[in-house]
Design a protein around this nucleic acid. Structure first.
Length: 380
DNA sequence: AATTCTATCAACCGCCAAGTC
DNA sequence: CGACTTGGCGGTTGATAGAAT
């Protein structure tokens, strides 16, 4: 079920991703975030278009992706939401943590569409059987008033409880909510968390940056300088040194509230345990020793504009917090870190980790032993 | 055993909205 | 205001595994 690898006119590779390409993408995004998908492949050493990289990351490599069997509950939610929203897969996916729109779309077409049809046919049949003909109606009027004991009435009452339930009140605003979720689809995963992290050091730490937390300015990246040897430059201590020289990040982000955030994050990860089904990203998250957080004065300058709220909300939501937590805009909300721990912009430890672990036989072995790769066969 | 059919799903494609210049 | 860029979405395709003949 894979496409034949090929190279198009412009020299860009298409088709199935190789393990090597995956490694490069994981290593790059983990370390530097996805500050610009179009530029990313160049720096990550990939002969792919940005779109392809984005798709691969979003649908396959990013953290917290659930793969495999759908639970009955998940399927019911999909069917329910599809009835409500139609083919708005990204909006549906937003209600199912860990599932991608692509996967849900596939699952719908291969499994649920039939089931949904069957259900609706069954429902219609049942509905037909409940339609009372004029003669029946007349007969009914003649019947005693003790109608609750009438099998037909009982059936109606019984059926009303099993008819499709109205969506919960929360879903009444699903369009809006889904839009928010859509905006921050990337934010909800580690990738954009990291993009923010990557952007963070670039920008000044006054109000401007925090009012536009998700707009990265790739002009900070001196493209020509990096372009010649992305493989080595981007993943090497030399590159880190370069980044420092250009002032692309500030040391101070390394040490602020590291411990409390780390503990907080780890506690969540423990709760999350089973849903972290992507061993690669679990490893990544667990391996990163620290996380940045703005100082209190910086926090106070954050404008709670809708974008910031939406994006940070989804980040937190993705951390398996409840929806009430996610929508909380109180002081506690802002005190909560809304960065994923895995974007400590190039910390030495992470750099070392990326350099050694992602390109080593040990990493390959790790992938294989976790069933992520089939040896020499690429990703399952 | 060989061939054909069907189900599956990763990946591609084209379009659109939002942002920027 | 229009051209351009970028990210995101939904529809579709293509290759393969497994079932059926």
């Amino acid at each position: 079920m894979v496409r034949t690898p090929r190279v198009d006119k412009s020299g860009l590779k298409k088709g199935t991703w190789t393990p090597e390409e995956d490694r490069k993408l994981i290593a790059y995004v983990t370390k530097y975030g996805c500050w610009n998908w179009r530029q990313l492949p160049k720096f990550a050493g990939l002969s792919r278009c940005g779109k392809s990289c984005r798709l691969r990351w979003m649908n396959y490599l990013r953290p917290n992706i659930k793969r495999g069997n759908y639970s009955k509950e998940e399927e019911d939610i999909i069917i329910k939401l599809h009835k409500e929203m139609g083919n708005r897969w990204s909006a549906i996916a937003a209600q199912l943590p860990g599932r991608t729109d692509n996967e849900i779309k596939n699952h719908w077409h291969t499994n649920l569409k039939k089931r949904s049809k069957q259900d609706s046919v069954t429902h219609e049949e049942r509905h037909d059987s409940l339609i009372i003909s004029p003669s029946e109606e007349r007969q009914k009027r003649k019947e005693p008033k003790n109608s609750l004991l009438n099998p037909k009435t009982t059936q109606i009452i019984g059926s009303s409880t099993s008819s499709p339930e109205p969506l919960s009140s929360g879903f009444s605003s699903i369009t809006k909510d889904a839009a928010v979720a859509t905006i921050s689809n990337m934010v909800a995963d580690g990738s954009t968390n990291m993009a923010v992290a990557s952007a963070q050091p670039y920008a000044d730490t006054t109000g401007n940056f925090w009012t536009q937390p998700f707009l990265t300015d790739n002009s900070y990246i001196p493209c020509d300088f990096l372009a010649p040897s992305p493989d080595t430059e981007c993943l090497s201590p030399a590159f880190d040194e370069f980044v420092r020289l250009y002032g692309l990040y500030e040391e101070k982000y390394k040490s602020i509230n590291i411990v409390s955030q780390r503990e907080n994050r780890q506690n969540r990860l423990i709760k999350q345990n089973n849903s972290l089904s992507n061993p690669v990203t679990s490893l990544i998250i667990d391996s990163v020793p620290s996380s940045p957080q703005p100082s209190s004065s910086e926090l106070s300058s954050i404008t709670k504009d809708s974008t910031a709220v939406a994006c940070s909300t989804n980040m937190i939501a993705d951390d398996n917090t409840t929806s009430s937590e996610a929508s909380d805009t109180s002081a506690d909300f802002w005190a909560e870190p809304f960065f994923s721990d895995n974007f400590n912009f190039p910390s030495d430890s992470l750099a070392t980790f990326v350099d050694t672990e992602f390109s080593s036989p040990a990493f390959d072995e790790f992938l294989c032993s976790n069933g992520w790769y089939e040896e020499n066969e690429g990703l399952k």
